[in-house]
Simulated assay, not measured.
Amino acid sequence: MYRLFALALVLWVGGCTVVHQELDNRGGYVDYLADKYWWKADSKKMRALRAYALHAAIARIAMISP
């Protein structure tokens, strides 16, 4: 019960941006953050390229890390 109340409180206080970005047709909140801090992607193809580059970077880091 408390978890549900805490989730509702978090969404009410700070979740407006999350909900707005998820309802927007731009890829959601994670893509909003990637646009803001990493690499601006204006089209669906550029978002796919950004996701591919990010996956490749994470795979490279995982491969060389013990």
Rank of each mutant, 00 (worst) to 15 (best):
M1V: 09
Y2P: 07
Y2I: 09
Y2F: 11
R3W: 07
R3L: 07
L4R: 15
L4V: 12
F5N: 08
F5S: 12
A6W: 12
A8W: 05
L9K: 14
L9W: 13
L9M: 10
V10W: 08
L11C: 11
L11T: 02
W12P: 05
V13D: 11
G14M: 03
G14W: 01
G14V: 03
G15E: 02
C16F: 09
T17P: 00
T17G: 08
H20W: 13
H20I: 06
Q21S: 06
E22M: 10
E22A: 04
D24R: 15
D24L: 15
D24P: 05
N25F: 11
G27L: 05
Y29E: 01
Y29K: 01
V30A: 04
V30P: 01
V30C: 01
D31V: 06
D31F: 12
D31E: 15
D31L: 09
Y32N: 03
Y32M: 03
L33C: 02
A34H: 00
D35H: 00
D35E: 00
K36V: 04
K36Q: 05
K36L: 10
W38G: 00
W39F: 08
W39P: 00
W39Q: 11
W39G: 03
K40C: 06
S43C: 02
S43E: 05
S43T: 06
K44P: 00
M46F: 08
R47P: 04
A48E: 14
A48H: 10
L49M: 13
L49H: 13
R50D: 01
R50W: 00
R50H: 04
Y52I: 10
L54T: 02
H55D: 03
H55T: 07
H55L: 13
H55S: 05
H55F: 08
A56K: 15
A57R: 07
A57N: 02
A57E: 07
A59I: 01
A59Q: 02
I61D: 14
A62C: 13
A62K: 14
M63D: 11
M63R: 14
M63I: 07
I64L: 09
I64C: 05
S65I: 06
S65W: 10
S65V: 06
S65E: 05
